[in-house]
Simulated scan of single mutants.
Amino acid sequence: MSKVKYYYDPDTLSYRKIEPKKSRRFRNIALFFLGSFLFGFLGLILLLNTNLVNTPRELSLAREVKNYELQFELLGKKMEQIENVLANIEDRDNNIYRLYFEANPIPEEQRRAGFGGVNRYKSLEGFNNSEMIIATTKRLDIIQKQMVIQSKSLDEITKLAEEKEKLLAAIPAIQPIKNEDLTRMASGYGWRSDPFTKARKMHWGMDFTSPKGTPVYASGDGTVTRADNNASGYGKHIRIDHGYGYMSLYGHLSQYNVKARQKVKRGDLIGFVGSTGRSEAPHLHYEVWKDDERINPINFYYGSLTAEEFENMLKFANQENQSLD
């Protein structure tokens, strides 16, 4: 309660009550409300800039962020499960399916390759959780790429399975010279000493030594694409396209028994051993190609050799001796 003030009136020789002016009263009330408003406003600003008080919207956004973090955690666990299943499929693909159909395994670096070039995730930068979002997106992209690669691989395996009989007949699976006709196997696939320069040189096939005129047989079904003397170093040679990316080559022949565009079956007589071209002695130089790349022929003799014969061949093929061409 406000204090009552008085003043002395000399005319009446008495004290009179001081009555405040209405304008002053209104001014004081206005100042009170203005001060209260400013104080409340400053207090609200301070509270909103601290963690003591959160607005309903901030509380709602915080709950959303927590929910998103939980969803990302669950997504990470699901991706881990997908990666484990995919790794199992890839392992079976490389070590069972592709091995069974004599297809080259898909290299690990190809399956796990990332994405080069421009920054694919620039639009995701600049947010509070950008690192987590970008890492998760990258992980999803890699999984998607792996699945595409695996899908294409399985499509290839399915196609091979549908044509299994033709494939098995076409694969160069027998030794091109019979064991009883061999003098010895001179050199295998790998780095060998060149007979002319004596320098170490990659030998892309296998050399089978045998007398001139020894029969040479087609190692798989296919079509003769070349039977000529027009390739440097090979002399008289024959090339057979077996399909499915396979090709076999028979070099340094003395004679042909087939001609270009002729279809042959596994075991057909196609030519005879000689020493034409870049050759030091009568022998057959034999190569196997897969998808335009030369591969080790020793992996393709399951159709004509016993386990003991194959073991002996493997021992001689691994010796770093001198090739004959």
Rank of each mutant, 00 (worst) to 15 (best):
L86V: 09
I143Y: 08
D91K: 14
E125D: 08
P56F: 03
Q262N: 06
L160Q: 06
G205D: 06
D291L: 13
Y286I: 04
S219G: 09
K138E: 15
S248Q: 04
K198H: 14
M206L: 14
R57T: 05
L167K: 07
L324G: 02
N84V: 10
E311Q: 12
E156R: 11
L168Y: 13
L314T: 14
K166H: 14
S153D: 05
I171N: 03
Q262T: 01
Q150D: 08
I106Q: 01
S248G: 09
E109G: 00
I89D: 07
E308K: 15
E109L: 13
F41I: 06
L44C: 07
Y301V: 05
R266S: 11
R192F: 10
V224M: 05
L305Q: 05
F316P: 02
R16Y: 05
D291Y: 12
A161P: 02
V85K: 11
S254P: 03
Y250M: 04
N67V: 04
N257V: 01
D181A: 12
H285L: 01
A186E: 11
D155F: 10
V224Q: 00
Y217H: 08
F208H: 05
G188T: 02
I240C: 09
Y6S: 03
E280F: 12
D9Y: 08
T183G: 10
S151W: 06
N318I: 05
E162I: 08
G117T: 00
A281I: 09
M313P: 00
E163G: 10
K78W: 03
G271M: 04
T214D: 07
D11I: 12
A113C: 09
R184Y: 15
G277F: 07
Y15D: 03
Y246T: 03
Q110A: 13
E80Y: 05
R120S: 00
I238P: 02
K21P: 08
F72W: 07
E293H: 13
A281R: 04
L140R: 11
V65E: 10
K164T: 09
L284R: 02
G274E: 00
E131C: 00
D325F: 08
E90N: 11
Y246K: 05
F196G: 06
G245Q: 07
P215G: 01
M202W: 14
R239W: 06
G117D: 08
Q110N: 13
D291C: 09
S151Y: 02
E83G: 09
A113N: 04
Q175G: 07
N49S: 01
S323A: 14
D207M: 03
Y250E: 03
Y256M: 05
K178N: 14
I133Y: 04
L74D: 04
G220K: 02
T214P: 04
E108Y: 12
A113F: 02
L46F: 02
